[in-house]
Design a protein around this nucleic acid. Sequence first.
RNA 1: GCGCCCUUAGCUCAGUUGGAUAGAGCAACAGCCUUCUAAGCUGUGGGUCGGUGGUUCGAAUCCACCAGGGCGCGCCA
Length: 598
Amino acid sequence: MNATDLYAHLRQTVLTALAQIIPDLPADIAARVEVTPTRDPAHGDMATNAAMVSAKAARQPPAKIAAALVQHLAAAPEIAAAETAGPGFVNLRLHPQTFRALLPIILANGEAYGDATAGTGTGTKINLEYVSANPTGPMHIGHCRGAVVGDALANLLTKAGYTVTKEYYINDAGAQVVALAWAAYWRYLQAIGTPLTEEEFAAEVPGGLQYKGDYLIPVGEMLKATHGTALATEAKGIAAPETWLDTVKDTTIAAMMTEVREDLRLLGVQQDIFTSERALVASGAADTVIAKLQADGLIYEGVLEPPKGKTPDDWEPRPQTLFRSTNFGDDVDRPLRKSDGSNTYFANDIAYHADKIGRGYNELIDVLGADHGGYVPRMKAAVKALSHDAVKFDAVLCQIVHILKGGVPLKMSKRAGSYVTLRDLLEEVGKDAVRFTMLTRKADAQMEFDLDQVLATTRENPVFYVQYAHARCRSVLRAAAEMFPGAALTDADLSTTNVDTLDGEPELTLIRRLALWPRTVESAASAREPHRIAFFLYDLAADFHMLWNRGKDDATLRFLQADQPAATRARLALVAATAVVIRSGLAVMGVTPVEEMR
RNA sequence: GCGCCCUUAGCUCAGUUGGAUAGAGCAACAGCCUUCUAAGCUGUGGGUCGGUGGUUCGAAUCCACCAGGGCGCGCCA
């Protein structure tokens, strides 16, 4: 037995036995057979629903199938006892040796333990788009959650065997970057000493002066350094926009993206591809896509009904170019062109997703803010239409994060420039705590990020609790090196250890938890829920701390016993394997494991 | 008015894709420090899983309706 996933292994054993009882069992029924950990240890180690799910197809009562399964399974070498239970479960009790045999495998595999070998992910190419913050200013706390969730999801899917491309879509087209350019231009005029006041300048800006934060001051300085006073009138006033707008836009977007990339780097996020909306628009991709949809008969000119119950005051019916998204499950058809004929953001975004489809992915996943929730059905419809249902589109929605300090919510105001930037947050609590904490909630649930709790050194704080467990593991191994000078104690060395002496219940509880790791990776990946990794690590840490603490009451239960080198070595293998799995999990979360608590 | 997401212990949240007697942490109460780190551990109490029906061997989980909370709803991105 050298399977890395004990549950998958036993599932095969059950399926083999089941095939002997019901030779012509349909494949779709077999697919529903599960081997799961039992909730109650009294029920054994694992349970299978095999008899219940196959009863109907086999036209036999579950109890009869279960009884036959018990007969067949009793012969399996891993299984100590099999018995029927409840409505048709078969409970399995494994030999402790079966669990213990996992430790050498974990140590030999290292952090690759839990990687899919032949799971659902194999061969599937996924494009994962996340962050995609507008390049109009520094990243703030709102972007942070999507960045962390997206990045951890990428790691998770990769571990589960998918081939993942991590992508950032730069929204550098449209009205907001024009507003950004005007704001940067104001900083430029200030830099060269304009006589204009802010009010006088703002009065000349189409749509008013937005983006008033200080972060554009360096951009103004940069423009001055490069262009001198050439972008302004001789009186250092506002020149005709066509003489400077593109230049200022280019410089500003480039400067903002430099900042964004630095923010991402500090957060530990590395994306593979940055795609520019502006370049996409310039290439005419949106018109190409509209033409393609037109050829499929999915485009028409029409007038949308006003939204029911809440008609805007300035509503008037206007004909637009519409996409028949209702053919693909959307509620209303969606406009691709505005009434003036220019393309909508949606048209550009369809073009972008068409581009991704063209790059050969089997699945597209967007990590979005929850305020984009209403946007998902139409994108789903568009991807379905464009790929003729060959490519899947999914969205992971991230709910809002409230920052608490001293139990009081921090006020956020972008207009006043007083919002919490990502960089502030990283300086305050550090990358690892930010990443871990962001993953301690389901993405689609609101979360409160308590600055005090994140830094707390108590069990309440999962970051600390998990890191502490790893540090304790490493501490034991360091102490072992002192107690047994010259002993070979690397993971590879320990992987050959005889671990038969590990027969205490707390030890076996911990090993059972380690056995769940591949299964946890698989289920978290297929549910696209990276937060499950955080909860798994918390539970694992709790099991380990419990084992550690037994040594308080009874010194003979401590890991290190100078007079029992063989038994100590077996315990060290368990400790090292625990550390391996914690590291493996932290790697998915993008958190650096610590060697000691300081 | 419509759509999507929520509602689980006093509080903050899990719940292994439909499994057996629903679990953690905090808070409350009761214990444990000449230690490989007590930055912790052990135990006790605490639940009509928002409500009502339905689907089936079996529902916190799926479906319908209702109640409460959040987000969104043509030419913003």
